[in-house]
């Protein structure tokens, strides 16, 4: 039994679920549900659709490189059954999941923090460079040369033309 990944959203396709499309060059596209299949038929790019894993990876929303992902990999060589190994694996799964959750949380935190810091640094730099352009509002009141003189402009009012040739 093999758990495949959905071609569109990269979620797990459990046996008996979804549909698979076989192209004439024998490439198999597996979809987890009709939503993904329909999006594929609409020729949407999963990298541009925001709810897919591909989008999140491309845009740095999710953790991509991590040693916890190494466990979940496609292997073409079937593992020989061993009771002890199986027990160890079953024990390790929740541990790995926990570690991954923690790492993902820190990744998200770091990502958000990094953005905040960057914005602040940029704003500070801009302020330093352009401090000569910023003046207190009282200066404008004292010196009339900074402000434009008030000009009155006459606006000619157009007469409305009541002519509608489309009218019946």
């Amino acid at each position: 039994m093999r758990l495949e990944k959905c071609w569109f959203c990269s979620s797990t396709v459990y046996p008996g679920h979804g549909i698979q499309f076989v192209r004439n060059d024998a490439k198999i596209f597996r979809f987890c549900r009709s939503k993904c299949h329909k999006n594929f038929k609409m020729k949407r790019n999963p990298r541009k659709v925001k709810w897919t894993k591909a989008y999140r990876r491309v845009h740095g929303k999710d953790m991509t490189k991590d040693s916890t992902f190494e466990f979940e990999r496609k292997r073409n060589r079937p593992e020989r059954y061993d009771r002890n190994v199986k027990e160890d694996v079953l024990k390790a799964i929740p541990k790995i999941a926990k570690i991954r959750a923690i790492r993902e949380e820190t990744h998200h935190k770091k990502m958000k923090q990094g953005k905040h810091e960057k914005l602040r640094r940029e704003a500070e730099k801009e302020l330093k460079q352009g401090i000569n352009m910023v003046k207190a509002p009282s200066v404008f009141q004292q010196d009339p040369s900074y402000t434009l003189p008030a000009i009155k402009v006459k606006v000619s009012q157009q007469k409305s033309v009541e002519n509608h040739p489309m009218e019946e």
Binding site: P15, G16, I19, Q20, F21, V22, N24
Partner: peptide, 19 residues
């Protein structure tokens, strides 16, 4: 050997071809 109409497989999933 190939049908564009989807066909159920023994495990409940479906398969579809190009032509």
């Amino acid at each position: 050997v190939r049908a564009a109409m989807q066909k159920g497989r023994c495990d409940g999933s479906e398969v579809r071809f190009d032509d």
